[in-house]
Amino acid sequence: MQSQSSYTQLTVYYLNGQSESFMVYDPVDAERVQQEFQQVVRRLLDRPWWVFHLSDQTVCIHIANVAKVEVKPPLPRLHGEDVFENAERVTALNRTTHRE
């Protein structure tokens, strides 16, 4: 398989209703990136802070403020007691506007 720019897209949904997405690039074989990311995803979810180095800034996210994280492409090799395999989304997530 030829080497190419590969990525994982993370969309972070915050408790306050806001969200943002990050593309994490790696100039290697896409299958290898997926395998490596799947190996560390559980450890990432246990970390209190995630740090994204962007071209113009560094973003630090306190995971306690996060309600949900979506990962694309999917991580089919992620298995365990707390993983629902062969799942299908039936309805989209409903979001309400946060007002103070």
Score class of each variant (00 low, 15 high):
V40Y: 09
E31L: 01
S3R: 13
A67N: 13
Y25T: 05
R43K: 14
V24P: 04
V41G: 13
V33T: 14
F52D: 06
D26W: 09
V41C: 14
Q4T: 07
R42D: 09
T11S: 15
D26C: 15
N16Q: 03
V71F: 01
S19W: 07
Q35S: 15
E36V: 14
P73N: 05
E20K: 02
L45T: 09
S21G: 15
G17P: 00
V41Y: 03
V24G: 07
Y13R: 11
R42V: 06
V59L: 07
E20C: 02
V69N: 03
D56H: 03
K72Q: 10
Q34I: 01
T11Q: 11
L15C: 06
V28A: 11
P74S: 08
F37W: 06
Y14C: 03
F37R: 10
P76C: 03
Q9H: 09
R43I: 05
Q38K: 05
A67P: 03
F52S: 05
K72F: 01
Q39L: 12
V12P: 05
K72T: 01
D29R: 10
L15D: 14
L44A: 13
D56V: 00
I61C: 11
W50R: 08
R32E: 15
P48G: 06
P27Y: 04
W49C: 04
L75M: 08
I61W: 09
F52Y: 11
R47E: 15
R47F: 13
V40C: 13
V51D: 08
V12H: 08
E70S: 12
E20S: 04
I61Q: 06
V24S: 11
T58S: 14
A67F: 03
F22K: 09
V12G: 06
L78K: 02
C60P: 08
K68T: 05
L15R: 14
E20V: 00
E70A: 11
S6L: 06
L78E: 05
V24K: 12
Q39M: 11
I63P: 02
S55R: 07
D46P: 00
V40G: 03
A67E: 14
S3L: 06
N65H: 12
N65A: 11
D26F: 10
E36S: 15
A30T: 02
N65V: 04
A67R: 14
E36H: 12
D29T: 10
S21L: 02
S19F: 04
Q18V: 07
T58D: 13
L75E: 07
Y25L: 01
V51A: 12
Y7D: 12
P73R: 05
Q35C: 05
P73V: 00
P27L: 02
G17W: 05
N65L: 08
Y13N: 09
V12M: 01
E31D: 15
H79V: 04
